[in-house]
């Protein structure tokens, strides 16, 4: 999906071969008042990979997702998505704060599912999913409708098209939210503790849908979750966060079975 923001300079972004770097954090620092949530963070995610962030609450995992979604802006450092700076623009060889238009273009490559679903309560299920494709991507009403129905079927809610979010269970709402995010055809899907607000018996349905998406599509995923078995199932890599830094990373089998770092062992013993 080429986007106007792709400049020739980023020749690698045109070919979306697996393995190309899709997201890159470069010395990113984020503070809230006196608290440094992210400290000179470097990390990257390759196209098609599923990366899970784990760590104690307050360790900065969600902040990473919110920075990527431009719900927050970094205090220092740069973030690149598909070769383009997210919060910056190159002007005359120097980096300057990006304009609204630039941010919007780069951001279109990213989709997000929130802990609290954040469905639009004033719109029925179908319109929640078609609203952005029609008004952001300029898709025709019919096409958006058609695609939305497919996605809603994918998450198993074809019966609920004409309901308002308040008429659905939490698990159903979250599945609609997943369909809504996918409808924008993002290259990266951010999942921010998507099952934390759900009653225990509803968690499995949502995770099944996500497993399905992870295994059958080539979408890149960045996941913050406390569901460790889910993380193990879908992840290519797991990053352990503590106090704004990555303390350890590796493939899930190694991370969960034989973690090297003391903090990782401590953390896993509390959640497993």
């Amino acid at each position: 999906m080429p986007s106007p923001a792709d400049t020739p300079r980023d020749s690698n972004s045109a070919s979306r071969a697996n393995g190309a770097e899709l997201v890159r954090f470069d010395k990113v620092t984020k503070r809230f008042g006196d608290v440094t949530v992210l400290d000179q963070l470097d990390f990257s995610v390759d196209t098609g990979k599923h990366v899970t962030l784990i760590g104690p609450s307050g360790s900065g995992k969600t902040t990473i997702l919110r920075l990527l979604m431009t719900l927050l802006t970094p205090d220092e450092g740069t973030i690149k998505v598909d070769g383009d700076y997210l919060n910056h623009e190159e002007r005359n060889g120097t980096l300057a704060k990006a304009g609204e238009k630039h941010v919007r273009e780069v951001r279109k490559k990213i989709g997000m599912v929130f802990q609290q679903f954040n469905l639009f309560p004033n719109m029925k299920v179908l319109r929640n999913v078609t609203e952005a494709p029609v008004h952001v991507l300029g898709m025709s009403k019919d096409e958006a409708d058609q695609r939305a129905r497919e996605l809603i079927e994918l998450v198993g809610l074809s019966e609920q098209l004409d309901k308002y979010p308040s008429q659905l269970s939490g698990g159903q709402q979250q599945r609609v939210a997943i369909a809504r995010a996918l409808a924008m055809r993002p290259q990266v899907l951010l999942l921010d503790e998507v099952t934390s607000a759900l009653d225990p018996e509803l968690v499995a349905g949502v995770l099944d849908v996500l497993r399905d998406i992870a295994h059958t599509t080539d979408i890149t995923m960045l996941v913050v979750t406390h569901e460790m078995s889910f993380a193990r199932d879908i992840s290519d890599a797991v990053l352990m966060f503590d106090r704004g830094k990555i303390v350890e990373s590796g493939p899930p089998d190694k991370m969960f079975s034989e973690p090297e770092h003391e903090r990782t062992r401590e953390f896993l013993s509390t959640v497993l």
Binding site: M69, T70, L71, R104, R107, K108, I110, G111, M112, F114, Q116, F117, N118, L119, F120, P121, N122, M123, E131, A132, H135, V136, R180, A181, M184
Partner: peptide, 27 residues
């Protein structure tokens, strides 16, 4: 209107005018 509504609109890249007209004001 909960902040999550603004955030969801941002995550979907809805333009500001659309966010006001379709999401925020109706609520």
């Amino acid at each position: 209107v909960p902040t999550g509504q603004w955030e969801a609109a941002t995550a979907l890249s809805l333009p500001r005018s659309r966010t006001w007209a379709a999401v925020i004001l109706p609520q």
